[in-house]
């Protein structure tokens, strides 16, 4: 069987802040972002703990023995250490063997899907049994910056393998479209990222659309061949607009559009959307996935859902997972995200 996804897990922290609460504090409107609330990691959570939780759920729900993992790639723009890998901590916390490839990835919001590509390539090269790609972020945003309305926390973990009994979605094809376009960045000693306002929108559509077009061109598929499309979701509007540009019906985007309810989970964003699609997808359905990372690039995938999906499902769907929540106000939000400087 073709290499593909054999299991996945999603972890969304319990805390939520409503966009209206952020609007109240700064006395300004979020505008038409299409986001109502965002997930907030508690003060004892970071991209590493989120990654472990997501991977643990995947292992449990899809009965994957961590000892089989030979590759771990953790994508994040909020790795807890500047130097010292998140991937090795995740491995230790899952109880893997010590024979595994590992590296931390960073490419703004597409580092998670980049990990997926690497695992897929290693699997195709028959260098591994099972690979683990994780996108995990506790996204940072400056108080009173427009990013604050959406920058959220979450993680998704995907296992890659090729066992006939296990693959729930084959990866038929993947490609990337990349260019040097600095629309969002963070220098080493800066606490929060900077961005270029509307220029980031330009960068998003340029890369997402071109990656999708490249994929269609190289595979010969038409936009209408896909049953679902998942795009990176910095807000609630961009993925819908990208679908329209590509001639994909907006209904095909909805199942994988979580941003309105949890915010932009950065490296996890596209992967959480994909997980939500796999929660409901039927055998032989085709999924288009296009991520986006500032700086800038997009990874595009064609996935074919297999018969195995009938008996291999996550115990709890993403739309169920996000129901377990607790609202906090802005004061608790800054406490949990450690934005009070005198602490």
């Amino acid at each position: 069987m073709q290499a593909g996804i054999i299991g996945y897990g999603v972890y969304i922290p319990r805390l939520r802040i409503k966009v209206s609460e952020i609007e109240r504090v700064w006395e300004k409107s979020a505008g038409g972002l299409g986001v109502t609330e965002k997930a907030v990691a508690a003060s004892d959570e970071d991209a590493c703990t989120l990654a472990v939780q997501a991977a643990r759920i995947a292992c449990e729900d899809f009965s994957i023995d961590p000892k089989r993992i030979n590759a771990i790639y953790v994508g994040s723009e909020s790795h807890p250490y500047a130097v010292n890998p998140t991937a090795s901590i995740v491995a230790e916390a899952l109880g893997t063997s010590h024979k595994y490839f590992a590296v931390d990835m960073e490419f703004a919001c597409k580092a998670g899907t980049a990990g997926l590509q690497v695992c897929y390539a290693l699997k195709k090269a028959k260098m591994i049994d099972v690979g683990l790609a994780i996108g995990s972020d506790t996204a940072q945003s400056k108080p009173n910056d427009p990013l604050e309305f959406t920058a959220a926390s979450g993680a998704a973990a995907f296992f890659i393998g090729d066992s006939k009994r296990e693959v729930i979605a084959e990866i038929e094809y993947t490609c990337s479209y990349t260019s040097d376009m600095p629309d969002f960045w963070r220098r080493p000693k800066a606490e929060f990222p900077e961005h270029t306002g509307r220029f980031t929108g330009e960068a998003y559509f340029k890369h997402v659309i071109n990656a999708a077009k490249l994929l269609l061109e190289e595979t010969g598929y038409k936009a209408s061949d896909f049953d679902y499309a998942v795009f990176h979701q910095p807000n609630g509007k961009f993925p819908i607009k990208a679908a329209k540009i590509l001639g994909i019906a907006p209904e095909k985007v909805k199942q994988g559009l979580l941003c309105p309810l949890i915010g932009n989970t950065y490296s996890a964003s596209t992967l959480i959307g994909l997980a939500s699609v796999l929660d409901v997808a039927k055998p032989n359905e085709k999924v288009l996935v296009v991520s986006y990372g500032s700086g800038a690039g997009s990874d595009a995938f064609v996935l074919n859902v297999t018969e195995n999906i009938e008996h291999r499902r996550a115990r709890k769907a993403v739309f169920e997972i996000i129901k377990e929540k607790e609202y906090i106000d802005y004061a608790l939000y800054v406490r949990h995200r450690r934005k009070i400087k005198s602490l």
């Binding site: 004892d44 970071d46 590493c48 703990t49 807890p80 010292n84 901590i89």
Partner: peptide, 16 residues
Amino acid sequence: VFRRIAEPDEYGTITY
């Protein structure tokens, strides 16, 4: 669940 234990300072290792 898997969490940070003590609050890390800016320079030391993080305890999980």
